[in-house]
């Protein structure tokens, strides 16, 4: 019993020693905003819409990001542009609702929607947190510098016809019976 009492006191003393020692350890708190830690490129904060390597909008308004968004903060309307490419006539993200889960980025088949490390985009007015397409579009490819969805899609646009895309054969002649 005395042993047990000594054990108890010793273990409590060990706890006090541990916490007491911390008093003399330099805090490793990073003082934001005096010091801003460089964040990894895949940190999830403000969402952007990137462009493909040719500088065209990547977003094809497929509604996958808005479909997967758990808080329904993305809305858009798809349309067809003069070159036959599907694009977003308007695209809106309500950052007041966004929880920065990154599911939209995972769902995006064209690498258009990407999350960036920039988390400092708080606004005083809630309506200013609603970003339209022009606020979201950037002039670079983001984290995926090479991918061009339309090079793989196989749909005819003003830029490429049938068989002009990656890993596509020329259109077949359906009028011949030659094997």
């Amino acid at each position: 019993m005395i042993r047990a009492g000594i054990d108890i006191i010793a273990s409590i003393a060990a706890g006090f020693y541990t916490t007491g020692r911390h008093l003399f350890v330099r805090p490793f708190t990073e003082s934001y905003p005096e010091y801003k830690r460089p964040l990894p490129a895949r940190s999830r904060a403000r969402i952007i819409l990137t462009r493909d390597p040719e500088g065209r909008e990547r977003c094809v308004a497929c509604y996958l990001c808005s479909g997967v968004c758990p808080v329904n903060c993305i809305s858009m309307q798809a349309a067809e542009d003069s070159r036959g490419r599907r694009y977003a006539a308007w695209f809106r993200i309500n950052f007041g609702r966004c929880i920065y889960c990154g599911l939209c980025e995972q769902a995006c088949p064209t690498s258009a929607i990407q999350l960036t490390p920039d988390f400092e985009h708080i606004r005083r007015d809630l309506l200013d947190m609603v970003f339209e397409k022009q606020d979201l579009l950037v002039d670079h490819c983001g984290k995926d510098p090479d991918y061009d969805f339309y090079q793989h899609a196989g749909v005819v646009t003003g830029l490429a016809g049938k068989g002009d895309h990656i890993s596509e054969n020329a259109p077949v002649n359906t009028r011949t019976n030659m094997p």
């Binding site: 497929c62 509604y63 996958l64 479909g67 490419r85 599907r86 088949p109 899609a153 196989g154 749909v155």
Partner: peptide
């Protein structure tokens, strides 16, 4: 089958 589900209206 082409890789065009995102721009295909049938998708979904």
């Amino acid at each position: 089958h082409p890789h065009d589900c995102p721009v295909c209206d049938e998708g979904g």
